[in-house]
Amino acid sequence: MAETRWSLRWNERPSEEAALFNPAFCGELIYRCVFEYEGIRATPMPLALAFVVLPLTLHPATRVILPGRANATLVTWAAERGPHLAELPDRVLALRPIAREALLFMTQAGALAVTAAGLQRGDAPLRLSAKRPAATPESEEIRRAAGLLGRWFANQGGAAAVLQALGVRP
């Protein structure tokens, strides 16, 4: 198998990528999405949705066009922003290894559990504090966006409708 940058050991990766794409931070983003989704739907979040969290929250140009409220209609929002979302399917594929690594990290830590119904909080849930003393404004914006996605996805028809509106195939 050919070695990719995602298969490099953490100390061999570029420091910027290691900081942004570390499993703890990316796992926290997915966890926040699951937490908010479960808060509205009271059901596990479909696993496929976890793979769009990072491309939507970590990409600054996409993050800034996310709706301000979770009751926005996803299909209308996506239709109005088609050109901005054109590269989203490619980002989903590119970040798939990072999302898998984050999911593995969070399930091993017990924060998330993968069930037949989807992703849910695990036996050792994270404590999501409102403010972190060492957080940057951008990292806080990314965390807020992940929570918004959870509420937004929960207000939509289902995982297939969300993925289709975003142009992503499962």
Rank of each mutant, 00 (worst) to 15 (best):
V52Q: 03
V52G: 05
V53P: 02
V53G: 05
P55I: 04
P60E: 09
V64Q: 08
V64L: 02
I65C: 01
G68K: 10
A70Y: 04
A72N: 03
L74N: 03
L74F: 09
V75S: 11
W77L: 06
W77C: 06
A79I: 00
H84G: 01
H84F: 07
L85A: 04
A86S: 11
E87A: 14
P89K: 07
P89R: 08
L93G: 11
L95Q: 09
R96W: 14
R100H: 12
R100D: 14
R100K: 14
E101V: 10
A102N: 10
L103W: 01
L103M: 09
L103A: 08
F105A: 09
M106N: 05
Q108I: 02
A109E: 09
L112K: 05
V114M: 06
T115V: 07
G118T: 04
L119G: 03
R121Y: 00
D123L: 13
A124T: 11
A124F: 04
P125Y: 01
R127F: 02
R127E: 07
S129A: 10
A130R: 12
A130P: 00
K131N: 07
R132H: 12
A134M: 12
P137C: 08
E138M: 13
S139Q: 15
S139A: 12
E140Q: 15
R143G: 06
R143A: 13
R144G: 06
R144C: 04
R144K: 12
A146N: 08
A146V: 11
A146S: 14
L148C: 02
L149I: 12
F153Q: 07
A154H: 02
N155D: 11
Q156C: 08
A159I: 07
A161E: 15
A161Y: 04
A161P: 01
V162A: 08
A165F: 07
L166T: 06
G167F: 10
V168Y: 06
P170W: 09
P170I: 11
